[in-house]
Computed example of a mutant assay.
Amino acid sequence: MLVCLLGLLAAQGVSAVEGAALEPAPAAAAPAAAAAPVDARDALAKKEGDVDQAKLLKETLTAADKQYSMLKQGKFALTYDLTYTYIGQQKINAKFTDSTLTLFNIQNTNSHTITNTVSLDYGLRDNLTGTVTLPVVSKYSDSSTFRGMTNAFGDMSVGARWQPFELKRNAPSITTSGTLRLPTGRSPFEVNDGSSVATGSGYTSFTLGVNMSKVIDPVAIFGSLSGTASLPAKNLSQQQDGLILSSVHPGKSFSFGAGFAYALSYDISTTLSFQETISGRTLLKFQDGTSSNTSMQTSSVLNFGLGVRVSPVTTVNFSIGVGLTPDTPDFTMGMNMPLNF
């Protein structure tokens, strides 16, 4: 069975993989990356008009994060992502004055978000790729304070990923990455309550990560680690429960993930991955000199992916994410495809 995996990723990343392993497939084994029900050797034979199998599997198995496939120097790649996210939550607001309950209400909030993202990759060197990402967000919110649709740009990001070591057949592939996210979206700290909803984070952040993958025929396993630090958002003047918010100091966050990819046939592959992010406390400062801290948050997502080859040069990827903690969206759905001109 031949497996040639050039790229694959876990929610926040999987490094590129190259190499081939050729061994006889057991009679009862399920078909792998490029096996056919009748004759695996015939199915693996490269036909006229077919893309290289390494490139095919790279596109198919990068449903969550296509950015970890290295481009040749001077080459461009344009990718389109469509993501739908649903958040449903119930908040209880209570306020005590002189040990007397003066405010108590329950707020039900439902949020539907559609994000269209275009990413441009450019090969700076064979092992160094630059990326620019621009999202456009359409968000519908239904709560006691606001009901309506907001359309605006999200947070733009620029970054690079670097493959420090040459790929070797029996060694894991390692890719490092750095991403700068800019607060180009509508800030949640500048939106007036009841007028609209935010489409961005409101502050600048920088993420460093490392991604590893290893082919264990016929499965590719991967894992990722990353850390994020953010700059404070200052010079604010937002009303918050009778106080005026002056600055926000986000806490640091740490993420890790793992998963595997398996090709069911020459045209279809599947992925399963888990991603968790732990975010530190955020400090809120007000104009009267008081301050408060939010609680730590833990976000966990279980992702299921399916890649379908629709032409010799195009693979469309679909994914579903299920939230596992209260700090995570209830579920997400996504589609990813290369834009070829």
Rank of each mutant, 00 (worst) to 15 (best):
D50G: 01
L128I: 13
V301N: 00
N336A: 01
S253G: 07
K168T: 13
Q89D: 10
T314A: 03
V219Y: 07
P338M: 04
T79I: 15
E48V: 14
V136Q: 12
G289V: 03
N93H: 15
D155W: 06
P329F: 06
S230C: 09
T228I: 00
T282E: 13
L6H: 12
D121A: 14
A33P: 01
S99T: 08
T62G: 05
R147K: 15
A229T: 15
T131V: 12
S311L: 04
M156D: 02
T207M: 03
A261V: 08
I92H: 13
P24Q: 12
Y203K: 07
A77M: 09
R125S: 12
V248M: 08
G123K: 03
T175I: 04
V308H: 11
G321Y: 01
T79M: 11
S119A: 14
T113Q: 15
T145E: 14
I244E: 12
L236S: 07
D193R: 13
M212L: 15
K72Y: 10
T85S: 02
L231T: 15
V158R: 01
L71I: 06
Y86K: 07
I278H: 02
T325S: 03
F189V: 02
A263Y: 02
S311T: 07
N192T: 10
G305N: 03
G185W: 00
F331P: 05
N127D: 14
Q239C: 07
S292M: 14
D65K: 03
V301D: 00
L22N: 08
N105A: 05
S177A: 13
P24F: 10
L5D: 03
A10F: 05
P218M: 04
H249G: 08
M335T: 10
M296C: 12
D81P: 06
Q287N: 15
F165N: 00
P26Q: 10
Y203R: 07
N93K: 13
P338F: 00
S319L: 02
Q90C: 01
Y262N: 06
N336C: 05
L167V: 10
T298H: 11
G227Y: 09
Y262T: 02
Y84F: 15
L225R: 07
L57E: 08
D50T: 01
L61T: 10
D155T: 02
S253E: 06
G178I: 08
S69D: 11
Q287D: 15
L71G: 04
W162N: 04
S205K: 02
F331T: 00
F146Q: 01
A33M: 12
L272H: 04
P250T: 09
V215L: 11
M70R: 00
A32C: 14
M70I: 05
P135D: 06
P232T: 10
G49F: 03
T133C: 00
T129P: 06
G185D: 06
S173V: 02
P183C: 10
L5P: 00
T328Q: 04
R281K: 15
H249C: 09
P218N: 06
E48C: 10
L6F: 08
T298Q: 13
T97E: 14
S201Y: 02
I244F: 04
A25M: 14
L56D: 05
T270E: 09
V248F: 05
Q238S: 13
P37K: 11
S237L: 02
Q287C: 06
D142K: 15
L236P: 04
G130W: 03
L236K: 01
T290A: 14
S205Q: 03
L231E: 15
R281Q: 15
I87M: 06
Q73Y: 07
T115C: 07
A63G: 05
T270V: 15
